[in-house]
C-alpha cells in the first residue's frame, strides 16, 4: 500500500500538524518507504493468533477508588503557556 498527496494531507490534519505544500512530496516518499518496509508482515500467517495486549504475566493492579492526589492547581498550571485565575486559557472555541 502506498499513500498519495491527499492522504498525506489528511494524515497531517488528523495528527494536528501543519504541513507546508512544498513538504508533501518529500513526506509522501518517506512514508511510502516505511510502508514498503513493513509490507513484509503480510507474509506471516497470523490466523488464530491473539494480538499482544501485554508482555507481562501479571494482572492489572487495582487500588481503592479514593482521591489519592491533587489539590495543587498552581503547580498544575505552572508550565501553561497561558492561564488565568486557576484556568488554562485557549483561543475562543464557541461563537
Amino acid at each position: 500500500m502506498s499513500v498519495d498527496a491527499a492522504t498525506v494531507r489528511r494524515i497531517a490534519h488528523l495528527a494536528r500538524i501543519a504541513v507546508a505544500d512544498n513538504e508533501i512530496e518529500h513526506l509522501r516518499g518517506e512514508i511510502n518507504n516505511i510502508l514498503g518496509f513493513v509490507e513484509q508482515l503480510n507474509e506471516v500467517n497470523v490466523d488464530g493468533v491473539e494480538p499482544t495486549a501485554s508482555v507481562e504475566d501479571m494482572k492489572l493492579k487495582m487500588r481503592e477508588d479514593v482521591v489519592s492526589d491533587g489539590n495543587y492547581a498552581k503547580r498544575v498550571l505552572a508550565n501553561a503557556p497561558a492561564s488565568d485565575d486557576g484556568f488554562f486559557q485557549v483561543p475562543k472555541v464557541v461563537e
Binding site: M1, A12, L14, A15, L35, V44, V49, E50, T52
Partner: peptide, 29 residues
C-alpha cells in the same frame, strides 16, 4: 513528525486491522 504521521495512519479507520492489529499478532509470535 514522521513517526506521529505513520502512527496516525496505521491507527486510522480502514487501516487499523491491516497494520496495527496484524503487527500486534506478529508480536505475539
Amino acid at each position: 513528525r514522521r513517526r506521529i504521521m505513520i502512527g496516525t495512519y496505521v491507527l486510522s479507520a480502514g487501516y487499523y486491522d491491516a497494520y496495527y492489529l496484524r503487527a500486534q499478532k506478529v508480536r505475539t509470535l
